[in-house]
Simulated scan of single mutants.
Amino acid sequence: MANTVDSAKQEATDTWITTKVKADLLTEKGVPGSDIKVETSQGVVSLSSDVAVTESQKAMAVRIAKNIKGVRSVMSDGLKAE
């Protein structure tokens, strides 16, 4: 029973993190927030995009994600750099 509660709590946290990262990316000037996909699993945020982003945009997106409470780490392998 405890595992079910913990996993439901984690899912809610992951959903909140994903939503918060997306919102922060969208409001940040200079980052193509609408082109960056965000997925979160157990506090690990994965950023990816179908369009190329600059190295500075990639770094900014990673920094924004890392600043969100509850984020353990950020994976940016899926962000295509120009």
Score class of each variant (00 low, 15 high):
S49T: 13
D6F: 12
L47S: 05
G43W: 03
V5S: 12
T18Y: 08
E82M: 04
A59K: 13
K58I: 01
T54P: 10
D50E: 15
L47K: 02
K66T: 02
G33H: 00
A12L: 08
W16L: 09
Q10M: 12
V51M: 06
G70H: 11
D6K: 15
G78H: 02
G43Y: 06
K29Y: 00
G78A: 11
N67L: 01
I17M: 10
S34K: 14
G33Y: 03
T40G: 12
I64Y: 01
T54E: 10
K66W: 08
A8H: 08
S56F: 15
D6C: 08
T27W: 00
Q57H: 10
I68L: 02
R72I: 14
V53D: 03
E55K: 11
E55R: 07
V71P: 10
A2Y: 11
K9R: 04
K9L: 07
K29P: 03
K22W: 13
V38H: 01
K66R: 14
D50R: 03
M75V: 13
A59D: 15
M75F: 06
K29H: 07
E11M: 09
K66N: 07
K20L: 11
L26Q: 08
M1P: 11
G70Q: 04
K69R: 06
S56C: 08
T27P: 00
V62D: 05
K29M: 05
W16F: 13
S73H: 06
K37D: 08
N67M: 02
T4F: 14
Q10G: 05
E55Y: 15
V51F: 09
G43Q: 14
V31Q: 00
S48F: 09
W16Y: 11
K58Q: 13
T40W: 09
A61T: 07
V5R: 14
K22H: 12
Q10N: 14
A65H: 04
T27I: 00
V71A: 12
E82D: 11
T4V: 15
K22A: 02
A65N: 04
S73G: 12
A2S: 15
V31D: 00
G30T: 03
V38S: 07
V5F: 04
D35G: 14
V44C: 05
E39C: 02
A52G: 12
K66M: 05
D77M: 12
K80M: 03
S76G: 14
Q42N: 15
M60E: 05
K37A: 02
T13H: 04
E11S: 15
T19Q: 10
K29A: 01
Q42P: 11
D50P: 07
A8Y: 12
D77V: 14
Q57R: 11
K66H: 05
M75A: 07
A23Y: 00
V5H: 11
E28M: 00
S73P: 10
L47A: 15
A23M: 02
D24K: 01
V53I: 10
T54L: 12
V53F: 02
A61E: 05
E28P: 00
S41N: 05
V51C: 03
V51H: 02
K58N: 06
I17G: 01
K80S: 05
K20D: 02
V44S: 06
P32D: 03
K37Q: 06
N3Q: 15
M1T: 14
P32V: 15
G70K: 03
T13C: 15
D14Y: 07
V21K: 02
E11F: 06
E28I: 00
A65P: 01
